[in-house]
Design a protein around this nucleic acid. Structure first.
Length: 226
DNA sequence: AGGTGATCATTA
DNA sequence: TAATGATCACCT
């Protein structure tokens, strides 16, 4: 999807664009930009995220860095229902299973992506055409010291398990805010990792995700401020 | 093959 | 019905 806008020059400009979307349906915004909306996301899972990127002037085809590198801001759409309940977890980045991870939390892509996030909540009803989904009020979030601490612990624990060769014991039940889940095209798309004996094994690629109960908390905190 | 954007769909 | 594990599309 090609963005009709240049990259925002400032945080202020980005927020102005974001707030201009608030209250509008996907269909309304897409129509004004001559963008065709799929009826369902079944085979277009990333469409909504890429659509909002285009609306805000993010250059897609991105690297492992924030969506707006010059502003150090990461963009995330947040699917919710009309009661304000978060419907899905939020993907953050891949978990490197191959190289020995000598990097620290503060050097990690997860840390950098989560320092400042522009959340764009989008409300939808089950079975309803995506065109009718409504963009709620976007907001900027920076993790509190407590949130930072918990994210750091979750990240360090996951990375340690990889470094100890315990990839096979990594599952989605681990981690309070940040969990590790498969991130692959399908079950046949394997990558290499190492077991506790240091032997090379083939396993599913994994990614870091924010649990929905955590993003729910973030959303709730923001509502209090308004 | 591995990164981006995520949601789907089956299980517990 | 919430969560986990599986999957879809596009890009480099």
């Amino acid at each position: 999807m090609i963005s009709p806008f240049p990259r925002p020059e400032s945080q202020k400009q980005l927020m102005q664009r974001a707030h201009a979307l608030a209250g509008k349906t996907i269909g309304e915004v897409a129509h004004s930009l001559n963008i065709i909306v799929p009826e369902t996301l079944k085979r277009k899972k990333g469409w909504q995220g890429q659509f909002i990127e285009a609306c805000l002037g993010a250059d897609s085809g991105s690297l492992s860095q924030p969506d707006f590198p010059h502003l150090k801001i990461e963009l995330k759409t947040l699917p919710i229902d009309y009661q304000g309940k978060v419907l899905e977890s939020t993907y953050v980045s891949v978990l490197n299973l191959t190289s020995q991870q000598l990097i620290s939390w503060q050097q990690s892509p997860v840390y950098h992506k989560l320092q400042k996030v522009l959340w764009v909540p989008i409300a939808r009803k089950p079975q309803q055409n995506i065109m009718l989904s409504r963009i709620a009020t976007p907001f900027l979030w920076c993790p509190t010291p407590q949130q930072q601490q918990t994210l750091k612990m979750d990240w360090e624990n996951a990375v340690e398990m990889v470094n100890l060769g315990k990839v096979d014991q990594l599952n989605a039940k681990i981690g309070e805010y940040l969990q590790v889940r498969p991130k692959a095209a399908n079950a046949k798309a394997l990558t290499s990792a190492y077991n506790q004996q240091g032997e090379k094994i083939a396993t599913l690629p994994r990614g870091f995700y924010l649990r929905s109960h955590f993003t729910q908390q973030i959303l709730q905190e923001n509502l209090k401020l308004n």
